[in-house]
């Protein structure tokens, strides 16, 4: 029983990390082409979940179908964010752009509080309670779907970046933005495309996470913090780093929450993060 318990914890941790790989992957993309970090991802996820919730209440559909409808709405909101503020501020100092996202976090978070209250909510899905066997272990179907979808999207993205011409322009822009501009790449348009792409990834993550995640408007900050930790730990802008760091953080969190009572379990990933930063300030796969 002990062995199966710990492997259960490991599998849950990996599933947890997979979703964060998706969010941090979007952040990595955005960071690569704009040199800024979108810290509002957590709040955007929560906003997406609330949009899903009202759609579900109105239409009575399953969580996964509703997620597909909520995605375009989230993208519209992100475009609003882009054209109203972000577009004009990309050349700003890091701290100020950070504050811009923080201001958006405040607006989104407290908008959700006023409209929906600060209670914890859950989505309804027909497979919410079902379980599937994975080898000798049992896994919740929702978690398995979340893990597989995340890995699928990450894989597709990796292929796009490494193998297609569009991916080549992304890498060129990430490497030397000024030269990329001289080579005829429309960097401004690319930044917009990447921003929307990262928001789509956030929306997908919210969609697969929502069926088994109890959320309140204040959860956004925790989600954002976890994805930030993964981003920094993997090394800014490194694909492999983001993937490895998310799985490591998920794994460590899964194992520590198995051995340590609930509140203290969260400390283990944080201390791991501290140690990584002390020994490799540029992150696991980062270059300086």
């Amino acid at each position: 029983m002990e062995i199966s318990g710990i492997s259960q914890a490991i599998i849950q941790g990996l599933a947890f990390g997979g979703v964060f790989a998706l969010i941090s992957g979007g952040m990595t993309l955005f960071h690569n082409v704009t040199n800024h970090v979108n810290v509002a991802v957590g709040s955007l996820m929560i906003l997406d979940m609330y949009i899903m919730l009202i759609l579900q209440q109105a239409l009575g559909l399953d969580a996964y179908i509703v997620a597909l409808i909520a995605l375009p709405i989230l993208v519209l909101f992100a475009l609003f964010m882009w054209y109203v503020t972000l577009k004009r501020c990309l050349h700003y100092d890091h701290l100020m752009l950070f504050q811009l996202f923080v201001a958006w976090i405040l607006v989104i978070e407290f908008f959700c509080v006023i409209i929906w209250g600060s209670d914890f909510r859950v989505m309804k899905s027909f497979i919410a309670l079902s379980k599937v066997p994975v080898g000798p272990l049992v896994m919740r179907t929702t978690q398995l779907i979340a893990f597989l979808v995340s890995l699928g999207v990450i894989g597709a993205l990796y292929w796009m970046i490494m193998k297609t011409e569009f991916g080549c322009t992304i890498r060129a822009t990430a490497y030397l933005p000024d030269i990329a501009r001289l080579m005829g790449i429309n960097v401004d348009r690319l930044q917009l495309i990447i921003f929307v792409l990262s928001i789509v990834m956030v929306g997908v993550a919210a969609g697969v996470l929502a069926p088994y995640f109890t959320f309140s408007p204040y959860s956004g900050l925790t989600l954002a913090l976890f994805s930030l930790i993964i981003l920094v730990m993997g090394g800014f802008g490194s694909w492999e780093g983001t993937l490895v760091a998310s799985l490591v953080i998920g794994l460590v969190y899964g194992i520590s929450s198995f051995y340590i009572p609930n509140a203290m379990a969260i400390l283990v990933p944080y201390f791991l993060f501290y140690l990584v930063l002390v020994f490799r300030p540029q992150g696991l796969f980062g270059v300086r």
Partner: peptide, 24 residues
């Protein structure tokens, strides 16, 4: 009390405008 949190939205919106027009 239903509107608790409105002040944070106001702070956020004012902050957005401040950042847009006053870079430092």
């Amino acid at each position: 009390s239903r509107l608790y949190g409105l002040e944070m939205i106001i702070v956020g919106v004012v902050a957005l405008f401040c950042i847009l027009y006053m870079r430092w």
